[in-house]
Amino acid sequence: MRVHPRYTQKAALALLGGATLLTVAVLVFIIFFVLEKGLPVLSLSFLFTNPQDMGRAGGILPTLIGTVALPVLALAIATPLGVGTAVYLTEYTRESGLTKVIRFGTDCLAGIPSIIFGLFGFIFFVTVLRLGWSILSGGLTLAFMVLPTIIRTSEEAIKAVPASYREVSFSLGATRWQTVRKVILPNALPGIVTGVMLGIGRSIGETAAVIFTAGSSLRMPHSVFDSVRTMSVHFYILAREGISNQNAYGTAAALIIAVLAVNLTAYWLMNRFIARRS
């Protein structure tokens, strides 16, 4: 029996609309749930004072530092490496067996569970290189974790730059590197920024790999060689050990607001960049 297109049309609309609604509802529910429990705890003094009694009282200042330091270090390492790899793969080599192997490798790397990265970071950075549980070990581990994301999003962004721009640039006497610098990277920037944002998001929220490599010290770090606890790890420990559910949710709320702020800032910067160029 054939169903009239009018009804299939309605059914498709309902299903697709429903899927969208469900997605948004889950997101809104999670955010409200966390904010409702966490916002009452949040205050300037909660953010900017040291914790006391394992986090039962006091604030979360050292974890705030850790949450900023680890992603900043990770992205400072991963962005040049990742964008460089993407430029090499797209602009400096022709599609070949080797590029396929490299691409397959990065895809596999992206699928490796974070705890395996944590284990690798623990064995290699913490023990073999004797960096100990430190911001440096954690940042390096996170850098390798977000590297595949940055490579693949940058690659897609670079491929999306029209081939005619390259032709024009070469025809005007530009070298390949000049073309990359003046035409390709500026036009691929919004896509590259998206990849970096995904990387920040992933490294801010990471818990398993961070416990293994940066440790969970609640003391204020003084250099990149000190151990640090991030907000995600703090939340995990507070909740898991039953230290303080209230402060756990306060930390979670701060974390969610931080992620939102990072994303909004990135969108704002990107829109400004695009508006200036067109």
Binding site: Y165, S171, G173
Partner: peptide
């Protein structure tokens, strides 16, 4: 390519 300049079929302003 600086001595021999080129204009393409479709205008491609950067």
């Amino acid at each position: 390519r600086k001595r021999v300049g080129m204009v393409f079929a479709l205008p491609v302003p950067l």
